[in-house]
Structure formats: C-alpha cells, structure tokens
Amino acid sequence: MSDLLKVTIDGKSIEVPPGTTIMQAARQLGGKYPPAMCYYEPLKNTGGKCRVCLVKVAQTSEANPRPMPKLVASCITRVEHGMVVENETSPEVLDARNGVVEFLLINHPLDCPVCDQAGECDLQNLSYEHGHEQTRYEEGRREFERIDIGPYVQLHMTRCILCYRCVYAADQLTGQRVHGVLNRGDVSEIGTYIQQSIENEFSGNIIDVCPVGALTDKTYRFKQRVWFSKPFDAHRDCDKCCGKVVLWMKGDAIIRVTARKNEFGEVTDFICNDCRFEHKQASDWSIEGPRDIIPESVIGANKYELPVVSPAVNVDAKFVSE
C-alpha cells in the first residue's frame, strides 16, 4: 500500500493511487467536493476550462511543503503525497468560485422560466450557492444568430458556457464530428459553420453531457417542467448501446428518454439515438422501478422519498482517520 498517496482536503484525509486528481480524491471523500461545469470524468480530455473547481493547494507535498503559487483546477491537478488542499474552508477559494459563477452568468440570458433544463441545470445549482442576488453587470448581453442543428437537438447558444463537453462527446462517441467551437473569445460559439444537422446515432448524448440548457432534447421541448415528470429506470435489448435508460413519464406517457447519470451527474453508459428518440411507448421498455433521486434535486424535493443509496466509493481507496 506504500505507493498510495495521502491527500488532505478540508481537513479530511484519504489515500489514493498515483494519477488521481484532487477532484477524484474529493469525490471519494464525499462531503462537499468541488463543483464541475466542464470536467466530465467519462469523457477524455475534459476539464480545466470553466474554473469553478479551483482549489487552494496549501502544501504541494510532503517533500515540497510550499503552497502552489496560485489556485489550481482540482479536476486536472494530480494529487501528490502529503498534499494539503483547501476547498470549502478557504475564503479565497470561495471568493474565486463566486467570481467564476458571476462571469458565467454575465452573458447568460437567465431565461430559466422558459428553459427545459431548469430543475436539472448545473448552472442553476451553482448560482444558488455562489451567485449574487443582484448582478453588477450593466452591459448588453451576448446574442447569437440562431442555427438549426437538426430534428433531435435544440441549440440555444446564449445559454452555452463553452465547456466543450459536447465537442469531446461527439469526438469520442460519434467518430465523425460535425459541430465544434467556432470563432474566438467571448463570441466563440458551438456551431456547424454551414447549416448541418447532427445526426450520428450517438449524437443525442451531447444533450446529457451539456451542463446547461444550451443543448436540449427537441422532442421534449416545452412538454413538461422536469420536476413534474416522473423518472423510472428502464431497459431494453438494443444492439447499438447498453439500452439502460431513464424514462421520464407524464401519466402513462413517456415524454423523454435520457441516459442514467451517476451521483456526480455523469453518464457512464451512453445510449443511442434509437433508444433516446425512437422508443417512446411503454411497451418498448422493461420498467425497473422509480429512479432514486438525490435529495438536493428540485425533482427530489417533494416527489420521491425513497432512501438514497450512499454514493459508491472507490473500494481501492482507503479512508484514513480525520
């Protein structure tokens, strides 16, 4: 066990294998781990961009007790033995995080009342915790020309925070990517350049990885506020994907199909467009039962009271006394 690295985050210690990032260690520790808007563990190369996961490294390692010179992105910074990290306990970190959330919001349209993502939006959650009550931003907000990217996915560029997750998803899941990040700076946008629809058979996954309402399910548009629909775990035999999904029901009708997200809000088993968009009859699916919802979720608040299974921890990780 000697090659495990001990890291202390907000006073709690854990030992992790080399290569583990601060974010991964913090998630294993449980409690309040840093938020992530761009990092997405199942997608390679994500992370480092949004900066909401910044933490303070008060001691780099046992061998090098100096702090790192500035705040680091916990999602891409690897743990060293004896590292001491401050997350929620550092006023500097919280101030930086508030600042980043403010930056993410200055050009955001704040159109949550008409946004299908509302209720399951990472930016909304982040704003509750780190946002100001009033904006200090008095300038004009960014606008984009609307583009149509096909029958399945609705793009609202004004809501996009440029996390690049959908770009990595398209690269890694679909092979032939037709959308990307165009232009530069604060006029960068997700687009296809020429009018083109995104139709690869795994393209629907860009909806699930989007942390905000920039990419939403066109077949579900304005059908229902998410907290009024009932999620059920279900599966079917599919020759393209795992076939394991969440069905979002209104009465007996399936109004939306998504992949299953883990306790970190990440999909590990991506699903095909066929399952997502083309199977909306209850008879298409074997329904396993109501889906567990985390208590913090808007949809969990008063709809479901199933006991929450504690998040699975990495069994390789050995907890050390606090």
Binding site: I161, L162, R184, D186, V187
Partner: peptide, 18 residues
C-alpha cells in the same frame, strides 16, 4: 485583450469583455 482572449476559460473570456 478582449479581442485576443481565446475564449476557452471563463474568467478571461467573460472578464476581459466586461
């Protein structure tokens, strides 16, 4: 700097324009 920001990370992308 606003014009030259690559737009990849949020503080620079949004902050320079502000």
């Amino acid at each position: 700097y606003h014009h030259e920001s690559c737009g990849q990370c949020s503080p620079c992308r949004e902050g320079t324009g502000w």
